[in-house]
Design a protein around this nucleic acid. Structure first.
Lengths: 226, 226
DNA sequence: GAAGGGTGAACAAGGCCCAACTCATCGAGG
DNA sequence: CCTCGATGAGTTGGGCCTTGTTCACCCTTC
C-alpha cells in the first residue's frame, strides 16, 4: 500500500480527500518532529515512536569485508502496542467497521493477560510521586538497571555508558545485589532501592494473593544458582 | 506525548479538533487493518509498517529461568524511512513550518548519500518488466534469496520454509553461484540470475563514475577470498 | 509528463529484541 | 469525574534483526 492508497483509504473514513492528505502529512510531520526532540509519541493501542540512541560500534562493509567504524547515532524506533500485536498475531479480531465511534468490541480486551487479577482492592498507593532523584536510569534508551544501586556501589557503575548495559556487568563486581536478595528475594532485588523500602511489605501481601493462581510459583528457586 | 497531545498538535495544522481525532483514529485503524492483511504500508519518507512472521522457538521465562516453547506468530514491525532516519540522526534538519504546502527545504535532499552521483545518464533500463516467475521469493518475511537460482538448482531449495533462510544454505550444495562470479565479481554474485546478464555492462559504467569519490574503491579485492 | 529520490535486496557480524509475569501509574473512555 | 485497561520496568538467554554499501526500479514530486 502506497501513501496515495493510504490517503485514499483514509478518505473513505473522513469523507474529504484533501483533509486526508493533510492529515497524513501533518501526522507524520508531528511524529517526526516530536521524536526528533527526543520525546516519545505514545499512541495507545497502536504503539510508541521513540528516538533510540545507538552506541558507536565497528561494523563491516559486506562487499569488501573490511571493518568500518560506525560512530554513535540516533535512530527512530517503533514498538507496537498491545492491541496492535494482538490483532496481528490473530489473538484478537478488530471490530467490524469502527468508522465513527468504534462501537462495541472494545469491552472484552482482558482475554490475554488480565484474566483473573482482581487485586485492585488493596492498592495502598504508598510512595506515590515518582522519586525523580531515584530515577537516575538515563532516559535515553532502556539502559537496564546498573544505575539504581544502594548508592554505595553506584560509583562502580562505569559500564552505564555503553547503552543498555545489563546488570550482569555490575553483578560480579559488587556483592551487594545478592546480599539484598537473601531476605525476601523475588521483587526485592535491585528494585528495592527505588521502591523506598516499602516494597517488602507490599510484595508479601501481593504474593499471598497471587500464589493461589500464579503460574510461576517458585521464583527464588533458580536465584540461588548465581 | 500522549494521544490527546498528538491530536492537539495535529489540530493546529488541520484547524479542526474533531477532524484531527478522527484522522488519528482512522489512520491507525487503516494501518492496523492493512498490516493485519499481510500487506505492507509504505509511507515515503516516514517508514514502512509490515507484518513479520516469527518462527517457533524456545524462549525462557526470565523469572524462573525455565524454557518455554513459543509457537510461531506474527508481529507488527516498522522500519523507518530515509528521511525519518536522517532527521533523527541529525544529518538533516526538517523545514521550518511545513504547515500547508511544505514550501522550501524539500529541494536539498541530496545532502547525505547522493552527493555527486549524476549517473542517471546511462540508465539503459534493460530487462524492464519484473520476470514474475523469477520472483518466487515468498513474500512472507524477507526470505532472502534461496529462490531465484538458475532453475537447475531450484529443486534443492527446501530450506526456504524456515523463514529468512539465507543463500548460504544453498551455496555449498551447488557450485553454480561461484562460477558465475568469476568474470566480473562484485555485483554479479547471485543476483546475476535475476538481472538477466546485462548487469555486467552496467556495473562497469557505474563503477567508473563512482570510483572517483566512492569510499569503497576496491570491491573485487576480498571477493576472491571465497 | 519527466526526473530524481527512496526503497529493496544482498551479505556478515554483532547488538538488541523477545518471552512470562507481576505491580504501579497513567491514559482513556463512559 | 471515575474506573478500567494499557504501558513500563525488571529478569536471562537465544537468536532474529539491524547496520553499511551499491545498484536497479518504482514512486513521488515538480
Amino acid at each position: 500500500m502506497n501513501k496515495a492508497q493510504l490517503i485514499e483509504a483514509l478518505t473513505e473514513r473522513l469523507g474529504d480527500k484533501k483533509a486526508a492528505g493533510a492529515a497524513v502529512d501533518g501526522l507524520v510531520d508531528v511524529i517526526v518532529r516530536t521524536v526528533n526532540k527526543g520525546e516519545k509519541v505514545n499512541i495507545t493501542g497502536f504503539g510508541v515512536f521513540e528516538k533510540r540512541a545507538r552506541a558507536a560500534r565497528t561494523a563491516r562493509n559486506p562487499r569488501t569485508g573490511e571493518t568500518v567504524k560506525v560512530k554513535k547515532t540516533n535512530v527512530p524506533a517503533f514498538r507496537a502496542g498491545t492491541m496492535f500485536k494482538e490483532v496481528v498475531s490473530g489473538a484478537k479480531k478488530l471490530p467490524k467497521v469502527a468508522a465513527t465511534k468504534t462501537t462495541a468490541g472494545t469491552a472484552r480486551t482482558t482475554a490475554t493477560r488480565g484474566t483473573a487479577a482482581a487485586t485492585t482492592t488493596t492498592r495502598t498507593r504508598a510512595a506515590a510521586a515518582k522519586p525523580a532523584a531515584a530515577t537516575t536510569r538515563s532516559t535515553t534508551t532502556r539502559t537496564r538497571a546498573a544505575a539504581a544501586k544502594p548508592a554505595a556501589v553506584a560509583a562502580t557503575t562505569t559500564a552505564a555508558k555503553t547503552t543498555r548495559t545489563r546488570a550482569t556487568a555490575a553483578k560480579p563486581a559488587a556483592a551487594a545485589p545478592k546480599a539484598a536478595a537473601a531476605p525476601k528475594a523475588t521483587a526485592a532485588k535491585t528494585t528495592a532501592a527505588k521502591k523506598t523500602t516499602t516494597a517488602a511489605a507490599k510484595t508479601t501481601a501481593a504474593k499471598k494473593t497471587t500464589a493461589a493462581k500464579s503460574t510461576t510459583p517458585r521464583a527464588t528457586a533458580k536465584a540461588t544458582k548465581k
